[in-house]
C-alpha cells in the first residue's frame, strides 16, 4: 500500500494546481506512471478515489503507462527496462526507490551501472481539466 503515499502526493499537487487555476470543479486528472516503479494501478486508483477532496468528486483519473528508457553514460547504449530479468526482491526495492536500479541493473552492452533513466521513472501529473 505504498501507492497510497504516491496517491496522496498526486492529490496534493492536483489540488494546488486547481487552486492556482481557480478551478471550481476538477473533471479529469491525467497521471503518467513509469514502468520502472511497477506501481499497482488498481491500488493507485483505489487510493485516489478514497482521497478525493470534494471539488474532485466527479473527477475521472486517467492513468497512462510509460515505458522506461535507460541510456548508458559510458558507451551511449540505449535500452528499455524489462522486469522479467529481475527477481521479486529487486523489483520490490526498485518499486520503493527507483534509483536503486543503479545497484541492480547494468548496461547490457558494457556492464556499466552509470546510466540515465531518460524516461518512465515514477509518477507524474500530466494534465488536469476542470471548470472555473
Amino acid at each position: 500500500m505504498h501507492e497510497w503515499a504516491l496517491a496522496e502526493a498526486v492529490i496534493a499537487a492536483a489540488e494546488k494546481i486547481a487552486e492556482k487555476e481557480k478551478l471550481r470543479e476538477v473533471k479529469e486528472v491525467t497521471i503518467k506512471v513509469g514502468e520502472l516503479q511497477q506501481v499497482e494501478e488498481d491500488i493507485l486508483r483505489f487510493a485516489l478515489s478514497q482521497l478525493k477532496p470534494s471539488n474532485f468528486k466527479n473527477a475521472e483519473f486517467r492513468i497512462t503507462k510509460a515505458r522506461t528508457a535507460l541510456r548508458c553514460r559510458v558507451c551511449g547504449n540505449s535500452w528499455l527496462f524489462k522486469r522479467n530479468n529481475l527477481d521479486a526482491a529487486t523489483v520490490e526495492a526498485i518499486h520503493f526507490v527507483p534509483e536503486v536500479a543503479h545497484s541492480y541493473i547494468k548496461c547490457p552492452k558494457c556492464g556499466s551501472p552509470d546510466f540515465e533513466i531518460t524516461e518512465g521513472r515514477g509518477v507524474w501529473l500530466e494534465n488536469i481539466k476542470g471548470v472555473r
Binding site: A9, A13, K32
Partner: peptide, 12 residues
Amino acid sequence: MIDPREDVITER
C-alpha cells in the same frame, strides 16, 4: 508534467 512528490513532504 509535474512531479507531485514535493507537495506532500510538509504533510509527511
